[in-house]
Write a protein that binds this DNA or RNA. Structure first.
Lengths: 205, 205
DNA sequence: GTCTATAGCAGGATAGAC
DNA sequence: GTCTATCCTGCTATAGAC
């Protein structure tokens, strides 16, 4: 996807179409946006879009793949856990990982995440991506984190799988709430702190 | 809303329109469904819809109000906590409350919930209902539950606010996952157990 | 690759007969 | 309250000139 321009810095028409589509889909949903809306935003005629994409559906496809390549593929690799926990304590590791995720969730990626949330029951790819990329893979990752921390004697609690699930599921809602409050025009400064408080609490025990 | 027929048992045209709209909106989203689609499903002409609703938006309005009346208004009343915890232990109270919520979440209400989730960034009412009715009010409720349980010496942990937030936020994701897996055609039998395990874990400490 | 022009259909909504 | 008929706008997509 976008080999020479992963940040979509408005060079060519294709990327400008993608950027406009992401913005509009995030505001009004896929079915709420027309090809006219997108091309009008870019400043080209509707027919030009079909030089770059097969059809409207193909635009959404490309956006979802873009998100998967940036976020889904590498964020929850089980191989990194063991070594990470050799260098850091559990809360340090989780803070570090949360910080990395925050770096990856640029404004553009957050817009795509909104699109995925809005299409979750309508589009099979969105549904599967949430189930696998947003729920299952991170759950496996955090379960493994707390398991290894338990094996290394870094936490006392003897139900690390439960702690992993609690961390992932709670963090997901915190991040969801952040997106909602941002969409509602509210201040979102305290949400990093909310995650860090959660980490502290779960690592105490 | 629907004074004589809260379960929408297909008596009059208005209710049949509502039921068809809920079904279709839950599958394809508000903007993905046309007035034609709805009336075709019911078996009346498009113009008939305008005898019962001002326009398409008014159909969505009515659906959202229906949900609010059934779920939002009374599910998280702070007054019930004190007395509940006099009769039951904490895990019993939470189990009882989870069971009550499950009773209220009929298949019809779950469809409306899907609609709300899909419209969350597009429709201001959906956004506000999620923030207030699905995040804030339940959070306040569960924080209060754990606070009172703490005051009564029913739990040892001295951060009941955090426990309340963790319970609510984790349960929200579990319920979200349930909806996704159901939409994906998967079995959802073990989700009651998942909530009960969470309750047991949080009440132990 | 972009444009003009247009096909062909689907969208929300209304008027007026019954 | 439901119907037929119709309005007019917006929609996706394509053909073909430049």
């Amino acid at each position: 996807m976008l080999e020479h321009n992963p940040s979509l810095t408005k060079k060519n028409t294709k990327d400008r179409i993608l950027e406009a589509a992401i913005e509009l889909f995030a505001q009004r949903g896929y079915t709420g946006v027309s090809v006219r809306d997108i091309t009008k935003e870019v400043g080209v005629k509707e027919s030009s879009l079909y030089n770059h994409f097969k059809n409207k559906e193909d635009v959404l496809n490309t956006i979802l793949e873009l998100f998967y390549d940036e976020i889904g593929k590498t964020s929850f690799s089980l191989e990194t856990i063991e070594e990470g926990l050799n260098h850091m304590d559990l809360s340090g590791f989780l803070q570090h990982h949360a910080f990395m995720l925050r770096q990856k969730n640029t404004p553009l990626m957050i817009k795509i995440r909104k699109i995925i949330y809005m299409e979750q029951f309508r589009d099979e790819r969105a549904l599967n991506f949430i189930l696998k990329g947003i729920i299952e893979a991170p759950s496996e990752f955090y379960k493994r984190v707390f398991q290894i921390a338990h094996e290394k004697g870094m936490i006392k609690n003897n139900n690390p799988e439960m702690l992993g699930m609690i961390y992932q599921y709670t963090a997901l809602t915190i991040f969801w709430e952040l997106m909602l409050r941002e969409a509602n025009g509210e201040d979102i400064a305290q949400y990093t702190k909310k995650i860090f408080n959660l980490i502290e609490f779960l690592c105490e025990r």
